[in-house]
Simulated assay, not measured.
Amino acid sequence: MRAIVWYGGSDLRIEDIPKPKLRNERHVVLRVKFCGICGSELQAYKGCSTRRVPPLVMGHEFSGEVVETGSDVKEIEIGDRVAVNPIISCGRCLACLRGRQNLCLDMKLIGMHMPGAFAEYVSVPAENCVKLPSEVDFEEGALAEPLANALHAVNRARPSIGDSVAILGPGPIGLSIMLLVQTIGVESVTVIGRSEDRLKIAEKFGANEVISIKNEKELMRIGEEVFDMVFEAAGSWQAVKTAIKFVKKGGRIIIVGLSHLKPMEDIGLMSITTKELDVLGSYGYTAFEFQKAVRLLSRLPMKEMITHIFPLSRAKDAFELLSQRKEPVLKVLLELDNGL
């Protein structure tokens, strides 16, 4: 089969590798349909992250069709259309027993610790497969993973109807957070970011206000201590510092973006103390949240976030587009099953 093998930095190669076999009798083999490119994979491509070790077939935001099942698999059948939760947990540690599989002591991620879905086929545990509702197509199914990340962040934050909410970073996860807090009934949502095109999408999705960080006059107009809750979804320490500035005393900051850019002491620990802020991390999602995200796909305009779809053979072009952003881009999918 063909796969996109990452050899470190921007070195991506299309190679013929053996088709995966069932790892055990509780696994299934999928024909991958679509796989999204995550910001963490882009960071690996740009040489900014060491969390993945080459050579590696990346890809963890994916949907596919079941083509083979192990003898002990009863809940999934050949031909089923599924989205895959890429978090593989041990099921035995205290975190797993508490339903917090994202904090498993022996957590593995498909596409990081084992071959992922930047390939025509992939072998995964049956229990990680969630059947797609009939009204959800494969493209939308590949968006279940970023939506689950957003859902976990919102569940951690526990927003109330009367809260004023700001979201820093209008990427796929930031925009998904916006859509989710709106479903709860939060009426005051401000989205702040750098990309004018992404801010326009936030406005289209119903943000009460969108502000470009390039517009210093607008940022000054906001003032300080104006939001009850701020989601940091940009993945930068500067965004964390901005969140501390904008959140009210006694407010809550939820850090969703992953950053390797600045040391911890730069973010303003004194303000966290003197303003008595609740600063929460949000990492991944639970198995239940992934299942719920799949059910939510048909209720949210997630598909409108997809701006580009590339065939497997043009994976390099897809990564370069995201890296250079020479044209408006939000969510990029790779189509693995079109023969190109």
Rank of each mutant, 00 (worst) to 15 (best):
S212Q: 09
S188W: 09
E232F: 00
G171A: 06
I161K: 12
G193Y: 03
I161Q: 06
P159F: 10
E203F: 03
V210C: 00
N215D: 11
M220T: 15
T183A: 04
Q182P: 11
D197A: 13
E218G: 14
S212K: 10
P159I: 12
Q182E: 12
R156Q: 15
G185C: 11
L179D: 11
F231H: 00
P170D: 09
K200F: 05
G174W: 05
D197S: 15
I201A: 01
D163L: 06
T190L: 14
V186Q: 09
G174V: 09
E203V: 14
A233R: 01
I161L: 13
R221A: 15
G174Q: 09
V210G: 03
L168P: 00
A233W: 00
D163Q: 11
S160C: 15
L168R: 00
M220V: 14
K200C: 10
P159R: 06
G193W: 04
P159Y: 07
G174M: 05
R194D: 11
E232L: 05
I211W: 00
I192W: 02
R194E: 10
K214E: 10
G185L: 13
E224K: 01
R194I: 14
I213H: 03
A207E: 03
V210I: 06
E224Y: 02
G174N: 08
D197P: 02
P172D: 11
N215H: 12
N215V: 10
F227S: 07
L199E: 04
E216D: 15
P159D: 14
K204E: 13
T190R: 07
G162A: 09
I184R: 08
